[in-house]
Amino acid sequence: MEKNEKELAQLIQEISGLNPKKCMKCGKCSGACPAFHEMEYHPHQFVDMVDRGDVNRLLESKSIWMCLTCFACVERCPRDVKPANFIEAARLALIRQQGCNHLKDEAVPPLLDEEMPQQAIVSAYRKFKK
């Protein structure tokens, strides 16, 4: 069954287990984010979009796949909002659906090189697909 946008936002909140309303929109997350310029929507917007239920645009954008999960936003947030967790929840809401993996198995081999540690591959698998 197709979920409408509001339900999807609700689902993302549920997966995150967090409350986006705690955000006071200071923007420190976006001030701290090292991947900011890779994103169309930025950490403070993630939180806001989930809160407002405006998530279709977010889930379609490449932004959610750009998060490095470096926890700079989590560490520095004065309100304990944890933007990174919302980003991950948005990813999970997507990749838990059939055929929605961000990383396809056949796409992996060309991305590898001799030196690449297992850790990178395992992490990327965990972060990008189910």
Binding site: P34, A35, L68, L103, M116, A120, A124, F128
Partner: peptide
């Protein structure tokens, strides 16, 4: 204590390089 680019090295090598 800033990110090196992490696992993004696989998908977005440019970002990892920058970081």
């Amino acid at each position: 204590n800033e990110c090196c680019g992490g696992y993004m090295a696989m998908e977005n090598k440019e970002l990892a390089k920058k970081k």
